[in-house]
């Protein structure tokens, strides 16, 4: 990879205490994020995408979850090892996050300007007046009309799209090196989704922030990301540039994910293959961490080896890595 790596996750394991015992909801996960790039984390609900984001932020829910192993290198530091004080300085400043639900992610008792200004005061040491001034500029930058007046409105007076813009303004206020966007558009209208993607792209170009986009929307991946990582049951199954993975998916799970998305741009009169769903369901939490391929039960190309050995990740050129025993023949 040409760009400099700013976040490097090595063998990250996050355990969650459930009624059935302790399950590794993230199991030996490794990936890198380069400066200014957009990496998409893709997978079904419960595959560990959001937990990965929380682990990077140091926000794994305590005490039911804990980081059991591995390291998260950010610059010269290991975020797993640094203390809570240092993490608080990093959060919102060097790494920030936007959430899925813009309707509930803003505090209803403060005006949006105060909420943005608060982040600036906390991390940049601005005084009240400077912070408010800067908040107006940020609102303007995320495309809120009449920003000088809107700065003192309250979240309930805004639409979902506008609130997500405010969240983006807050997240980018301190020009972070990494922005984690956890399904930023899932709760929004399709037209608004496109606007938010445009906004993220424009702001990324201006600030050079790397984006980790968590989504299950293949359209969003193609739209925004350069590289993608497909996760299944807490493990990485496939990783590579979006072009490579979409055009030539090697893992049966990735193939399934792609084939269940309809292609709107196809000629409507053309003969179309029926959409294929991936049969079966995600394994139960208690089965996570087993030394086998966890997708084997749903896989059409399953062989004996899949149930006996955990697949290792192989590189198929230009960073296209796949963890599947059948990857050679799969494509």
């Amino acid at each position: 990879m040409a760009t400099q790596t700013i976040l490097e996750v090595r063998d990250l394991t996050v355990e969650l205490a459930t009624r059935d015992g302790i399950s590794p909801v993230i199991d030996g996960l490794s990936f890198e994020v380069g400066a200014g790039e957009t990496l998409a984390l893709v997978g079904e609900s419960g595959c560990g995408k959001s937990m990965t984001a929380l682990a990077v932020m140091g926000l794994v829910p305590h005490p039911i979850g804990r980081i059991a192993g591995g390291e998260i290198r950010f610059g010269s530091e290991d975020l797993v090892a640094v203390g809570e004080d240092r993490l608080r300085d990093i959060r919102g400043n060097d790494i920030s996050m936007i959430f899925q639900e813009p309707m509930t992610s803003l505090n209803p008792v403060y005006s949006v300007g105060e909420q943005i200004a608060e982040v600036l005061r906390r991390h940049q040491g601005l005084n009240h007046k400077q912070a408010r001034q800067h908040a107006v500029e940020l609102l303007h930058a995320v495309g809120i009309p009449d920003a000088a007046a809107r700065v003192s409105t309250y979240p309930h007076q805004m639409s979902g799209g506008q609130r997500q813009r405010v969240m983006i303004a807050m997240a980018l206020a301190c020009k972070p090196k990494i922005l984690i966007a956890d399904e930023p558009t899932t709760a929004l209208d399709v037209t608004v989704q496109a606007q938010i993607f445009d906004l993220l792209r424009v702001l990324q170009r201006e600030t050079g922030t790397a984006i980790v986009l968590i989504t299950h929307d293949m359209g969003a991946v193609c739209e925004l990301a350069e590289r993608m990582m497909v996760m299944y049951a807490g493990r990485k199954v496939e990783e590579g540039t979006v072009d490579d993975v979409i055009a030539n998916p090697r893992h049966p799970y990735t193939q399934g994910l792609i084939s269940c998305v309809p292609h709107v741009t196809d000629d409507p009169s053309a003969e179309r293959a029926p959409l294929v769903e991936i049969s079966g369901i995600v394994p139960a939490l208690r089965d996570f961490g087993a030394d086998q391929c966890l997708f084997a039960a749903r896989c059409r190309q399953v062989v004996a080896r899949c149930a006996a050995e955990r697949p290792v990740s192989n590189d198929f050129g230009s960073g296209h890595r796949v963890a599947c025993w059948q990857a050679e023949v799969a494509s």
Binding site: P108, A141, T153, Y154, Q157, Q162, Q195
Partner: peptide
């Protein structure tokens, strides 16, 4: 700075919770 299209909602007078 590039301007992005807006989803409009009419601006009401800013009224605080109080």
């Amino acid at each position: 700075m590039e301007k992005v299209v807006i989803d409009e909602k009419p601006v009401e007078a800013a009224r605080g919770p109080i």
